[in-house]
């Protein structure tokens, strides 16, 4: 970090501060004072964060078997898994989201036992489809990453465990999975940021995340740029938190570097 505050950086920081001050003074931020919008903004940020966390966790839980099937499974498991990953990675997320929301959303009401089931009040809302589409997307991308991670674990370790008479599931739980997860940890931070960048798409199917809130403010108040700038700042802040969180996580995992 030595020499970070070189003269040019001080000048640039001053210019950046000047731009921020200009933005605060010259642009129209009166809508931020409205308690109605404050509440909406906080709720929107909360929705974005929980969708991000839930879909990352669900997606990773799906990605582990997908990666394992491709790395070590028989062909009748490996082929469908590879096909699924290719399908998810080869089509736009927006299309997948709309397919699930509009497609399933138009199919379900026509099936009587779904309409009468206790799940119907939930299935009528938009968020289950958002969570499903985003989780499947994570599963597709991370399944490919996990495949590489499982393959990267030195084979000798698995053979040693087998030779010691360790049961197969214990080998997986104690040796294979922990080492594979440790390998993906550096990638996972970046992938989580990418996933965060995909979350505003859920606004297109009427989930009220922070992006939808800003669109609503723009429509209500006819303020064009300011809500977008606020959005950019919010997302950059979330991205910063994710990066710091994963850096902290990586430091906690003991790693021996040769």
């Amino acid at each position: 970090m030595q020499g970070f505050w070189a003269p040019r950086r001080i000048v640039m920081a001053a210019i950046a501060a000047g731009i921020v001050v200009w933005c605060v003074l010259a642009l129209n931020w009166t809508w931020l004072a409205d308690p109605k919008y404050q509440g909406l903004i906080l709720q929107g940020i909360w929705t974005t964060i929980w969708i991000l966390v839930v879909t990352m966790v669900l997606g990773m839980l799906l990605a582990i078997p997908l990666g394992l099937a491709q790395a070590a499974g028989p062909w009748w498991l490996a082929m469908p898994a590879a096909g699924f990953c290719g399908l998810i990675r080869g089509t736009p997320l927006l299309l997948q989201l709309w397919l699930l929301y509009y497609g399933l959303g138009s199919l379900f009401p026509s099936i009587p036992w779904i309409r009468q089931s206790d799940l119907w009040p939930i299935l009528r809302q938009a968020w289950p489809y958002a969570v499903l589409a985003l989780s499947l997307s994570v599963a597709g991308y991370e399944g490919e990453v996990m495949r590489g991670a499982f393959k990267g674990v030195p084979h000798g370790q698995l053979e040693a465990a087998k030779a010691m008479g360790m049961p197969r599931f214990t080998i997986f739980r104690r040796i294979w999975l922990p080492q594979a997860l440790r390998r993906v940890l550096p990638t996972l931070g970046g992938e989580t940021v990418l996933q965060m960048k995909a979350t505003p798409l859920v606004a297109t199917i009427t989930v009220i995340d922070i992006y939808a809130v800003s669109s609503r403010i723009r429509q209500d108040t006819f303020v064009v740029y300011e809500p977008l700038l606020l959005l950019a700042v919010v997302y950059m802040a979330i991205a910063g938190v994710i990066v710091l969180l994963f850096r902290w996580l990586e430091n906690r995992v003991p790693q021996k570097t040769a």
């Binding site: 640039m12 740029y225 959005l231 950059m236 910063g240």
Partner: peptide, 29 residues
């Protein structure tokens, strides 16, 4: 050094903000 810093700002911002929002901002701007 100034070019490098400016490029670092460019790549960092673009990679941290969702494409959808960049598209909206840039589209209008």
């Amino acid at each position: 050094p100034v070019t490098r810093d400016l490029l670092a700002v460019y790549t960092t911002i673009v990679r941290a903000v969702p494409e959808l929002i960049l598209i909206l901002i840039l589209y209008f701007a």
